[in-house]
């Protein structure tokens, strides 16, 4: 955490800070997704939709209804939570492939709706001139202020999530992951916990979406497609599903890698793909699995 505070002092270049800002935004979503996938064992291929709902609610309320960013931000959270709750009740009854398919379908529906409701969302062309976040007279515009805001939120969300994992709820979630049937038999209200964690992860995504809208100030449906949902799941899987820190690690890697590979020109996709492939083949538990292994080896010697 100290590193996070020290980083902008060493790294003054707004370009690097800009990448760190996106990394923070993605981290918010992947932490939530790791709670859902790693702890509760439920896959979601539709999280781009919650990200989109957050972004569009914030964007539309601030530009068209001229609300200030904070109430719009809260409204986005409430709306996303309601939608996630309603979607969660029927879909979380499904398992495995069916759950993946249902969430994928939900993501597509939101994507199509954003494209089709031209008068409301600007349609495929999107809309811009979303106001920036302002705290009193201070406008969050420089990369440094964005960096501070987004990573402060990441730390809050991270602490909250870690607390949750080590609580009764966390234990209940892990029991669902191991065996839903056994958890049920032990008196864990599985469907309640599943919906709760689904809603929580959707709220994280919504927070990230609102930040994205105010930072980029332009949104169009293209940023919230299936590809983005898959990227999010990849971040969690590559990092190591069984741990929130793993999700964070995966996010760091998948945000930095494409930027690092810019120097390789046309070969970037090739290297990117093979890196992911190698991680999956040789580190089935993700990057965090490797960290854990190294730690035990180190502990023995």
């Amino acid at each position: 955490m100290l590193g996070l505070v020290a980083l902008p002092m060493v790294m003054r270049n707004p370009y690097y800070l800009g990448i760190m800002v996106f990394m923070g935004i993605y981290s918010l979503i992947s932490i939530g997704l790791s709670l859902l996938m790693g702890y509760a064992g439920q896959i979601s291929l539709g999280h781009a939709a919650f990200f989109a709902i957050g972004a569009y609610t914030s964007g539309i309320l601030t530009t068209k209804a001229h609300l200030s960013p904070l109430p719009a931000f809260l409204a986005a959270i409430v709306l996303t939570a309601c939608i996630a709750f309603l979607i969660g009740i029927p879909t979380l009854r499904l398992k495995g492939h069916y759950l993946a398919m249902a969430t994928l379908g939900f993501g597509q529906i939101v994507y199509v709706a954003l494209n089709a409701s031209v008068d409301f969302t600007g349609g495929p062309s999107g809309f811009g001139e979303i106001p920036r976040i302002a705290l009193g007279n201070f406008v969050v515009e420089s990369q440094l202020s964005r960096y501070c805001l987004v990573w402060a939120l990441v730390i809050i969300v991270l602490l909250f999530s870690l607390n949750l994992i080590h609580s009764r709820v966390g234990r209940a979630l892990r029991s669902i992951h191991s065996s839903e049937l056994a958890a049920n038999a032990m008196g864990v209200n599985t469907s309640k916990y599943k919906i709760q964690v689904f809603v929580l992860s959707a709220i994280y995504a919504s927070i990230a979406g609102s930040l994205y809208a105010h930072f980029v100030t332009f949104i169009s449906p293209g940023s919230f497609d299936l590809e983005f949902s898959i990227l999010l799941v990849t971040m969690v899987v590559v990092g190591g599903m069984a741990n929130v820190w793993g999700a964070l690690l995966g996010t760091v890697l998948l945000t930095l890698l494409p930027e690092f590979l810019r120097g390789f020109k046309d070969y970037d996709i090739l290297i990117y793909g093979s890196t992911l492939l190698l991680i999956m083949i040789f580190m089935p538990e993700g990057l965090f699995g490797l960290v854990k292994k190294l730690r035990t080896v180190h502990g023995k010697t």
């Binding site: 270049n13 707004p14 370009y15 800009g18 990369q143 980029v216 332009f218 940023s223 494409p258 930027e259």
Partner: peptide, 15 residues
Amino acid sequence: DETKTVNAVNKLIEK
């Protein structure tokens, strides 16, 4: 992609 474009432009300008 918009996010990638934003990063690319920041790189061109700042780096």
